[in-house]
């Protein structure tokens, strides 16, 4: 078994293990859950790009794609976080209202 075969196996395993995160994207009760799942899938796509490079024997080319993808993924997560925290703006109300809503859920 060469390392290329092993890499193909790792890639397939990675793809299968992404399924829980994708389930979280589909089911996720809130928007933030979906973003977390998408962030996780994006991080693992970086790894998948490296694996594809190893399989095709062109790591020196695909590593640049992986680097760019990691940067884009981080920027996307930060942008989504910034956008959503200005949409909700709950943090100002500290004492009374948030406590009630937690008590009824917990």
């Amino acid at each position: 078994m060469t390392f290329e075969h092993f890499s193909i196996g790792v890639g397939v395993a990675l793809l299968l293990l992404m399924i829980p995160a994708m389930c979280r994207i589909v089911m996720g009760p809130t928007t933030m859950d979906r973003i977390v799942g998408a962030n996780m899938v994006g991080t693992k796509t970086t790894v998948l790009l490296v694996i594809i490079g190893v399989i095709f024997g062109k790591v020196d080319m695909f590593i640049d794609f992986a680097l760019t993808y990691a940067l884009l993924n981080f920027t996307g997560a930060i942008a989504a976080a910034r956008y959503l925290r200005h949409k909700g703006r709950r943090g100002i109300v500290l004492a009374s209202t948030s406590e009630e809503s937690v008590c009824e859920r917990a």
Binding site: M32, I35, N39, L71, A77, G91, R105
Partner: peptide, 23 residues
């Protein structure tokens, strides 16, 4: 890069979830 970025985006997303009203 991941060392810095991953923890930072985790904290940023947690903060956004808090502001967004996740209890």
């Amino acid at each position: 890069f991941l060392y810095i970025a991953s923890a930072t985006s985790t904290s940023a997303l947690a903060e956004a979830g808090w502001e967004d009203g996740n209890d």
